[in-house]
């Protein structure tokens, strides 16, 4: 089961991230992972939360533009070459990584072209793939 991610368009203005996180906090939504990709005028805030449906509805209600994606979450072996071994597997199968970031401890989420294929591949290679519900309750 993939991990759902919410991408939110946020202008580069003071306080916008604070507003976003406060909204989620007040609604009792817990942020499990977080990343920001930014350009000069705006950024894309990527969120892994415990209640993705509620969070998306809430943000849309507050005039944020939200896009959902399915990511795979991988437990990276906590040793030298750990991340490299996983990236090698993907590249050898020609699966392109759009972006990735670390969430709670050594878990890293990946946005790849073909999540199902990538997940199968990694599972078969003995990599620990973490399911969405597991991530939310970490």
């Amino acid at each position: 089961m993939h991990t759902r991610e919410l991408s939110v368009f946020v202008e580069n203005k003071a306080g916008r991230l604070a507003v976003l996180t406060k909204l989620l906090g007040q609604a009792g939504i817990n942020i499990r992972g977080f990343s920001v990709a930014d350009m000069s005028d705006y950024g894309i805030v990527r969120l892994i939360v415990d209640k993705p449906d509620e969070a998306a509805a809430l943000l849309r209600e507050c005039d944020f533009i939200v896009r959902e994606s399915s990511l795979i979450c991988v437990r990276v072996p906590d040793q030298p070459g750990g991340l490299s071994s996983i990236l090698n597997m993907l590249s050898e199968s020609d699966i392109n990584v759009e972006y990735m970031y670390a969430i709670v401890d050594t878990l890293i989420v990946f946005n790849v072209e073909n999540p199902d294929q990538a997940e199968r591949l990694l599972l078969e290679s003995g990599v620990k793939v973490v399911s969405g519900p597991e991530v939310y309750s970490l």
Partner: peptide, 13 residues
Amino acid sequence: VSDNLFFNEMKRM
């Protein structure tokens, strides 16, 4: 931006 004018990838933005 709107639903039709937003992507989660910077490249596409």
